[in-house]
């Protein structure tokens, strides 16, 4: 069981009487890109919100690298190395691209005000941040835009930057919430390549919530299909796309 990274066990999230997530169990393995698909309202974003502590779980457990993280705050979970990206382009809009990535790197070192008193924290953090920004600008191809104000970038670049900020935090695992939503076909392909490279070159595990089936089947090792907060199937892409229940719930209805 050493290669299990994220473990979700009988997780339930209820809003009033409705279960957005219902008795859900799955796990991700080291080096894996796991896709999560499902129709709108099937509980994908709720799942991320519960895993990252934005919403409290109603029942069940989440373990990360063998340790329970249920009930911990978002920032504590982030400090453990589990970082998310957001469905909409989420960047510091008034800051430069450079500053956005720098904050991503720096904020890990100063999670609480008292950490400023740890010797060398700020100096070391700044040095690391400088290296990280340079490396990630190169990695993501955003170098030419480094001095641009993030809010003035085209939407696709902003979403790309959102992912890069999270990478600057040096996650062990990245939870990506619909990185291709709102992107044009070219940008979607580029985003797919970025996701693959995040795993291959940076050795970061990825959980990918996505609607774009072409991208999901292309980059994911396994896919978890959700409907009404329940797992219908978890399998390799080739089998998921032929799974009768998945076709019924999702592909059949949503596929143009």
């Amino acid at each position: 069981m050493n290669d299990v990274v994220l473990e979700v066990a009988t997780l339930t999230k209820a809003f009033g009487g409705v279960n957005a997530i219902s008795n859900l169990s799955f796990e991700t393995r080291r080096g894996e890109i796991l896709g999560v698909i499902g129709p709108n309202g099937s509980g994908k974003t709720t799942l991320f919100n519960v895993i990252t502590g934005v919403l409290p779980a109603s029942a069940g457990k989440v373990r990360f690298c063998g340790e329970a993280i249920t009930g911990l705050s978002t920032d504590t979970i982030s400090q453990r190395g589990l970082i998310r990206t957001f469905q909409s382009a989420t960047v510091f809009k008034n800051e430069t691209v450079y500053e956005n990535i720098r904050r991503g790197s720096m904020f890990g070192c100063i999670g609480k005000p008292s950490w400023f008193f740890r010797p060398g924290v700020v100096a070391n953090g700044k040095r690391t941040a400088k290296e990280t920004v340079a490396e990630l600008l190169e990695f993501s191809g955003l170098s030419d835009l480094a001095t641009r104000i993030a809010g003035t970038l085209p939407y696709g670049k902003q979403k790309m930057l959102g992912v890069v900020i999270a990478l600057a935090r040096r996650p062990l695992q990245l939870l990506m919430d619909e990185p291709a939503a709102g992107l044009n076909p070219t940008e979607t392909v580029a985003m797919g390549e970025l996701v693959t490279q995040i795993r291959d070159k940076r050795e970061i595990d990825v959980v990918l919530v996505e609607h774009d089936m072409k991208m999901v089947t292309a980059v994911c090792d396994r896919i978890l299909a959700l409907n009404y907060g329940k797992a219908i199937a978890i399998d390799i892409p080739e089998r998921i796309v032929r799974h009768p229940e998945v076709i019924d719930a999702y592909l059949g209805v949503d596929h143009e």
Partner: peptide
């Protein structure tokens, strides 16, 4: 002018993002 200012400004600009990067927003 320091990192503290960057955190404080970030909290106002986008709290969800700031917290997801590991900042304890309540204490700041």
């Amino acid at each position: 002018g320091t990192e503290l200012g960057a955190v404080i400004t970030s909290l106002d600009e986008d709290e969800a993002l700031t917290r997801s990067l590991g900042i304890d927003s309540r204490r700041y």
